[in-house]
């Protein structure tokens, strides 16, 4: 087994562990930190089901962003929807036999790759052209876009310019999943593509990509409008009530 294969295999294992553990820690933190008060952005749903639908609208078609700015919305949808389709298309490298719907999605995944890159480039252009967005953009915002564009671009290279031995790539990933290492083709575009993906996985739980779990825990979106009907009390705030009531009893 080449040292390159071993290096990439180890890197993937490490990256997967960092991604999963990092997200578990963060999600646990979000889930367990109390909310002292009811702060849904009103008007808000009055039932739990309503809140689930509100969050679904937020994550599926970016409802609030749509209200805000149609250009950002179009770019964001192009990128995110493109990314989902591309990810779905990539599933075939990790499963055998390939599920029927994954077969169906293959041709769309190609177009989605273009959409994804177009969305990213447009979002990046906003960071340079629109003065307000330029003002709020820091180095990490540009680097994140560079990383994602790099992944998209190197992926498209692999599909259209320097086609790699995809059978071997699939064998490598199935091997990773089965803890049975298979050789990885030593081709530059492929190594770049995979290297960038590994970087993304590691960076994920330490970066603004935390918006992915964050949106599900955002109190302004995830709380029910029922403050008058149900008493909401954070555990740490309960002791203030006890002090109040004992003072009143004296």
């Amino acid at each position: 087994m080449s040292s390159l294969t071993v290096a990439y295999a180890v890197a993937f294992y490490v990256a997967a562990a960092v991604l999963v553990l990092g997200l578990v820690v963060k999600i646990k933190q979000y889930a367990t930190t109390p909310s002292p008060l009811k702060i849904p952005t009103m008007p808000a749903p009055r039932t739990r089901l309503g809140v689930v639908l509100r969050i679904l609208r937020e994550v599926i078609y970016f409802e609030s962003l749509f209200k805000s700015n149609k250009w950002i919305w179009i770019c964001a949808v192009l990128f995110h929807a493109g990314l989902w389709l591309v990810l779905a298309r990539h599933l075939r490298y990790f499963i055998e036999p390939v599920w029927f719907w994954v077969v169906l999605v293959q041709p769309f995944g190609i177009y989605a790759g273009f959409a994804m890159i177009a969305g990213l480039v447009a979002l990046w252009a906003r960071r340079i052209v629109v003065n307000r967005v330029r003002y709020i953009s820091g180095p990490s915002d540009h680097l994140m876009l560079a990383l994602l564009v790099g992944i998209g671009f190197s992926g498209m290279m692999l599909r259209f310019v320097e086609r790699t031995d995809i059978i071997a790539v699939k064998a490598f990933f199935l091997g990773l999943l089965r803890f049975d290492l298979q050789p990885l083709p030593a081709e530059m575009p492929l190594l770049v593509h995979l290297g960038l993906v590994i970087t993304l996985m590691i960076v994920f739980p330490f970066s603004k990509l935390l918006h992915v779990p964050g949106v599900f825990f955002s109190p302004s979106r995830a709380q029910v409008d029922d403050a008058r009907e149900k008493r909401h009390l954070a555990p740490w705030a309960a002791k203030l009530d006890a002090e109040r009531d004992s003072a009143a009893a004296e």
Binding site: T33, K208, H211, G214, S218
Partner: peptide, 24 residues
């Protein structure tokens, strides 16, 4: 405050600097 207020935690982590709020 981070330990007492979920909103603060989530909001400080989640911003992607998309610019949606900039003119609001």
């Amino acid at each position: 405050l981070l330990g007492k207020n979920k909103a603060l935690r989530v909001y400080l982590d989640s911003c992607v600097k998309c610019g949606a709020c900039t003119d609001k």
